[in-house]
């Protein structure tokens, strides 16, 4: 049994222009100790998926169905109280903007302590000791002093470390990280990615990493899910995906990124994806990527492609996937582009 198993998840929002199908039939699974990355551009449904797992969808204007099984329990069927017991303990989270996720009027020590007292029922002294230990673990200098500080007294990188310390304080079995390093500078991002990789490797926590940055995916993930307009369009182990993306969207995304060449020859022009993302309120019949796709055919215009196996452990939702390259030829192509 997987740690997290999502099947046929749909999340819809009520908007002024109709029903917005933010997530439409998403299925995926994460094992213990595994990092699964969900990549896609804004509005593809990746963050909404995270909210759905954590039971944080806004009430009244959104609804979800399908199943989200965590260690066998369907999270969507739980009451708010039951969900609260799981959230922050067995499943915890790290968000993009640490400033808005931390309570500005509580000291760092209190905030970490709150989680511990709530879920572990620790006493005052034990809580403090554990909070101190957590701050040390995430590499915060002078942890004793930091415990008494307020979030605004810390830098962005420090705040993100505090968020990670809070997220890991109760030894969660699943960590949801939504763009955890997007707001950080590159040198700090490198520190935080190293830290998360190290901690996850040590504790065997499963992780869902939500990001738009293929660089972060390559650094962190073992498995990748690519989403477009609320649906999963490709899923593969990280090496296969980067070596031979099969969905034209994934391919175009990878090609449209400017890359560091270390002084080498860069392409004159970047690959563009023409057009724009479709409105999620439009009913889906044909492939949603078809209007922007260089490989589109008549079939694409009539029916949404099924999500099917297209290689060893590699799945894609496309009628005309990118050709399966010869293993021998494929590798140097992408490598050559970067190392040249």
């Amino acid at each position: 049994m997987s740690l997290l198993e999502i099947e046929g998840l749909r999340v819809q929002f009520r908007t002024a222009t109709g029903v917005s199908r933010a997530v439409d039939g998403l299925s995926l699974s994460v094992d213990a100790g595994q990092v699964l990355a969900i990549v896609g551009e804004s509005g593809c449904g990746k963050s909404v998926t995270a909210m759905a797992i954590l039971g944080l969808l806004p009430e009244g204007i959104s609804r979800a169905d399908g199943t989200i099984r965590f260690e066998g329990r369907d999270l969507l069927a739980l009451t708010d109280r039951e969900m609260q017991k799981i959230r922050g303990k067995a499943v915890s989270m790290v968000f993009q903007e640490p400033m808005t996720s931390l309570n500005p009027v509580l000291t760092v020590g209190r905030q970490i302590g709150e989680t511990l007292r709530l879920h572990e029922g620790l006493g005052r002294r034990a809580t403090e000791a554990r909070a101190l230990e957590m701050l040390r673990l995430v590499g915060i200098p002078e942890p004793e002093r930091r415990l008494k500080q307020y979030p605004h007294e810390l830098s962005g990188g420090m705040r993100q470390r505090v968020m990670i310390a809070m997220a890991l304080a109760c030894n969660p079995r699943l960590l949801i990280a939504d763009e955890p390093t997007t707001a950080l500078d590159v040198t700090v991002q490198a520190q935080i990615l190293d830290l998360m990789r190290d901690l996850i490797g040590r504790t065997g926590t499963g992780m869902v990493l939500i990001t738009h940055d293929f660089g972060v995916v390559a650094e962190m993930a073992q498995r990748v899910v690519v989403m477009y307009a609320g649906r999963k369009v490709e899923e593969a182990p990280v090496r296969d995906l980067f070596a031979a993306p099969r969905h034209p969207y994934t391919r175009a995304l990878l090609d449209s990124m400017p890359r560091l060449t270390e002084g080498g020859e860069a392409p004159e022009e970047l690959t563009e994806i023409p057009g724009v993302v479709p409105a999620l309120t439009e009913p889906v019949r044909a492939c949603t990527f078809e209007p922007r796709c260089p490989r589109a055919s008549d079939q694409c215009r009539t029916l949404y492609p099924p999500f099917r196996e297209c290689g060893d452990d590699h799945m894609v939702a496309c009628w005309n996937p990118e050709p399966q390259p010869d293993a021998a030829v494929a590798e140097p192509r992408r490598q050559g582009e970067m190392k040249a």
Partner: peptide, 18 residues
């Protein structure tokens, strides 16, 4: 797995928006 993906389009919406 394909079944659920296809079914998603065919299942009725969770909202009825007037």
């Amino acid at each position: 797995m394909p079944a659920t993906t296809l079914a998603a389009t065919e299942r009725p919406d969770l909202f009825v928006v007037r």
